[in-house]
């Protein structure tokens, strides 16, 4: 497992804080997920229940089991996981699939880095906590996906299926929506980023 240095922006004072980006979701990260991330999600859920927040506003990734996802991807060349750790806390995770191809007409059939799962830790999510610890974790993971795509000669092309709550985020990233995917009974919207969009995303 390799690690590189990145920086996260602390919301409270705007400072950049050194963080580690791991090119794997290892047991230590899964232990952190179980020890702090999952309990924080449960606290948020209990709060939603207490305040009678409608179900459609609950986090739609509540059911994601990162241990199952990471373990099933181990040893597969077409799968790559990433974890961000800062101040000894897990801040976000992403699982990439490098075996998929594009659906957009202008790049149809070309390889893409497909984001299977991407999530920021609950303490970095505005919908779950009054004051987030770090901002931009999702965007950094998106940039990592673009960098992986470039490194694999996929020219920065990426794709993903978005949960409805995340549609606006991916639109803001400059991705093209191909609409609700009938393969997911229309529950998920499929997005892609072209090479040109990737350049723009990484430079603005």
């Amino acid at each position: 497992m390799e690690v590189s240095k990145i920086h996260l922006r602390r919301v409270r004072d705007g400072t950049l804080v050194a963080a580690d980006l791991f090119d794997d979701i290892a047991d230590e990260h899964l232990a952190m997920w179980e020890r702090s991330w999952l309990p924080a999600m449960r606290v948020a859920l209990a709060d939603f229940r207490r305040r009678h927040v409608p179900r459609d506003r609950w986090p739609q990734d509540l059911h994601w089991n990162w241990r199952e996802k990471a373990v099933s991807a181990r040893g597969l060349l077409g799968q790559q996981g990433f974890a961000i750790v800062c101040e000894e806390r897990l801040q976000g995770m992403m699982q990439l699939n490098l075996t998929k191809t594009s659906r957009l007409p202008q790049q149809r059939g070309k390889e893409i880095a497909y984001i299977e799962f991407l999530a920021a830790a609950p303490w970095n999510r505005a919908e779950l906590i009054r004051e987030r610890e770090f901002a931009g974790v999702g965007k950094i993971l998106m940039r990592v996906a673009v960098e992986v795509s470039v490194a694999q000669e996929f020219k920065g092309r990426i794709g993903l299926h978005s949960l409805p709550q995340a549609d606006a985020f991916y639109e803001k990233c400059g991705m093209t929506s191909l609409g609700a995917d009938p393969r997911y009974e229309g529950r998920l919207t499929y997005f892609e980023m072209t090479a040109a969009q990737a350049v723009h995303f990484c430079t603005v």
């Binding site: 390799e2 590189s4 990145i6 931009g136 965007k139």
Partner: peptide
């Protein structure tokens, strides 16, 4: 201040 572009871990 702009966020810094993440650098990927060293390729194997």
């Amino acid at each position: 201040m702009k966020d810094r572009m993440p650098e990927l871990p060293t390729p194997p």
